[in-house]
């Protein structure tokens, strides 16, 4: 995070020295885009935090660790697709799940859907890609995540 501030700050200073007018124009463009996105962003974040608050970790362990297999994969892809957990929380959580016996395939599926499939952020994504393409991208990513999860599971089962 700090590195992002440093890079942004440094580039801003360099840009300002090189051309004040151009820099201001760029800042204006950026700010305008940010402001137009803000209401949708806020409402998505509100809905996500309400949903996340009601999904306790114990429930994840119970469903992901399902020995029958299919339920574990299904719940991992469902939770991964719906939720929006930042990496610094999802990785410790995944580590904890592995320690409580959840398979690596399920974890891979959970991590990949978490990153690539965003059901909650569909309204946001649709503002850029359009609804149809957004749904297609999410569906393809889900299929891709399942393929990755299965291969990982097989790999860890044979080694």
């Amino acid at each position: 995070m700090t590195i992002l501030f440093i890079i942004t700050g440094a580039l801003l200073v360099v840009s300002f020295i090189a051309n004040k007018q151009k820099t201001l124009e760029g800042l204006k463009k950026g700010a305008l885009q940010f402001l137009k996105l803000l209401p949708t962003l806020l409402s998505v974040i509100i809905l996500v935090s309400i949903a996340m608050y009601f999904i306790p970790e114990k429930m994840l362990i119970k469903y992901f660790g399902d020995q029958a297999g299919v339920l574990g994969y299904l719940s991992a892809s469902l939770v991964g697709s719906v939720s929006l957990i930042p990496g610094f929380i999802s990785y410790p959580l995944a580590g904890m799940l592995v320690e409580s016996g959840v398979g690596y395939g399920v974890i891979a599926l959970f991590i990949t859907t978490l990153k690539m499939v965003g059901i909650m952020t569909i309204p946001l994504e649709a503002k850029y890609f359009g609804m149809k393409v957004t749904l297609q991208r999410n569906a393809l990513s889900l299929i891709g995540a399942i393929v990755i999860g299965i291969i990982m599971a097989v790999f860890f089962a044979v080694t």
């Binding site: 801003l12 151009k22 124009e25 760029g26 950026g30 885009q33 935090s49």
Partner: peptide, 28 residues
């Protein structure tokens, strides 16, 4: 205090930087 604040913090730190960079990229 827990979930909402966490997301809001992420949004309000990363995104302004992102949009500054997008704006600069756009003009340069």
């Amino acid at each position: 205090e827990t979930t909402f604040w966490r997301f809001l913090k992420e949004m309000l730190t990363i995104l302004p930087c992102m949009f500054i960079l997008i704006g600069l990229f756009d003009v340069w």
